[in-house]
Computed example of a mutant assay.
Amino acid sequence: MFVIVRHGNTFEAGEPPRRIGARTDLPLTAAGLAQADALGAHFAAQNLGFLRVLASPLARTRQTADAILAHLPGAPEAEPVDWLREIDHGPDEDRTEPEVLARIGAEALAAWDARAEPPPGWTVDAEVRIAAWRALFSGDHGPTLLVTSNGAARFALIAAGLEVPGGMKLATGSYGIIRRGEDGVLGLAEWSVRP
């Protein structure tokens, strides 16, 4: 079982959200910390135990992982993994959605959301990310918690050959679960669920 978590909120209520990627290391807001705490309480209530915990090295993902693990005594510490780091939004880094849309257009953004096709100027390292997810999925690590970002999480779906009817986006403070069946085939149990 692979539980994939997107970090909590990094923008205060009323603050316009911006495209924040690998180059901007924002901490969680109070609301983001509450989301991470809710995830930890949720996983503890479901008696989820993890044998391995991987997290992006960015502050927002490390804080999310730490808050979750505070609810799971005996869980291993989070291992920093660079391929879980957020993508680089290039010229759109730190820009609001209207600014991003004005530069790349709605079609390019829709292609990113539906198929992880990066808009011009974004650096995603898709091949590296897909290969890393596939290597993880092919191993026998036991229940694994991964704490990452929206840009990186979508490549888990591609690597596993899974589709989500509502789109690839993983909302802040939410999680998805990919399970391996007895036949070895990966299946999507949940995606973008907030506790």
Results as ranks from 00 to 15, higher is better:
142 G>R: 05
177 I>A: 12
163 E>L: 12
174 S>H: 05
168 M>V: 12
146 L>R: 01
165 P>C: 15
152 A>R: 02
136 L>V: 06
173 G>A: 11
153 A>D: 07
146 L>G: 02
148 T>Q: 07
137 F>H: 06
155 F>K: 07
160 A>M: 14
158 I>W: 03
183 D>M: 00
164 V>Y: 10
168 M>S: 06
157 L>P: 00
137 F>R: 07
153 A>C: 05
176 G>E: 08
168 M>Y: 10
155 F>E: 08
178 I>D: 05
178 I>L: 15
176 G>V: 08
161 G>L: 12
182 E>H: 06
151 G>R: 03
148 T>D: 04
148 T>W: 03
146 L>S: 07
146 L>H: 03
162 L>W: 14
181 G>Q: 07
150 N>R: 03
172 T>N: 13
144 T>W: 05
150 N>L: 02
176 G>Q: 13
148 T>F: 04
161 G>N: 09
179 R>K: 13
162 L>F: 14
169 K>L: 11
162 L>A: 12
184 G>T: 00
141 H>D: 14
169 K>C: 01
137 F>I: 09
164 V>M: 13
156 A>Q: 03
158 I>L: 15
155 F>H: 14
175 Y>G: 05
140 D>W: 01
144 T>M: 09
140 D>I: 00
163 E>D: 15
171 A>C: 09
153 A>K: 07
160 A>G: 14
150 N>H: 10
159 A>T: 12
164 V>F: 04
170 L>H: 08
182 E>Y: 00
175 Y>W: 14
141 H>Q: 04
166 G>Q: 14
176 G>A: 13
164 V>T: 14
137 F>G: 02
153 A>M: 08
145 L>G: 09
139 G>F: 01
139 G>D: 12
141 H>S: 11
183 D>P: 00
161 G>S: 11
176 G>D: 11
172 T>I: 03
171 A>W: 08
156 A>P: 04
172 T>M: 10
185 V>W: 00
153 A>V: 02
